[in-house]
Amino acid sequence: MSFISRGFKGRGRREGAAGRLPPGQYLEHGFPVLSAGPTPHTPLDRWDFTMVGQVDQVRRWTWDEFLALPAETITRDIHCVTKWSKLDSTWTGVSVDTLLDGVETSADYVLAFCDGGYTTNLPLEDVTGGKAWIAYAYEGQPLAPAHGGPARLLVPHLYFWKSAKWVRGLELLAADQPGFWESLGYHNRGDPWREQRYWGDE
């Protein structure tokens, strides 16, 4: 029998998110901002997105080239490790599958790198097969800098720190390499449905 908090009744369940809230999460209607440092402001004429590391050749897109790629608009629930979840958020961006199309690689992992120096690591299979995007619009509007604009990685099936803000590229790697939060106590994979928040969870 687990501990019961004397006098706690709880009211979150009345909000009826019916099976869409992972364990320990609560429903959030706003869009909180979380980041470890100042918000970078890279001018679009100096922005590019690159695919580097274990690739047959480096791929690079300028902002205009990136916008010309086939885009998808998707609606997903997102889950932050700080406990809030937001349902039905709508994003527009380029599928990582599209960016990897034609890339020859033997890599099993990726490390996303960003303006400001942030990194996050993922197994390649977590960003392929229609599971990850480079998003540049949120709810039909250009993505605000505080939320990761001009573009952020979007991997909605994992905790949101994996959806790296201000992303500038992916490095394809043969061996896994912990990113920023993954080196500072947060779980290496971060599956919200298994509540993989911190080192040693599960």
């Binding site: 470890a36 440092g37 100042p38 406990k83 809030w84």
Partner: peptide
Amino acid sequence: ADALVALGHDPGRIRTERFGPTG
């Protein structure tokens, strides 16, 4: 954080933690 960067402080020496209107 924006003002510190504008004043010339190294962004790498600025660490932030946010208490949202939520929580």
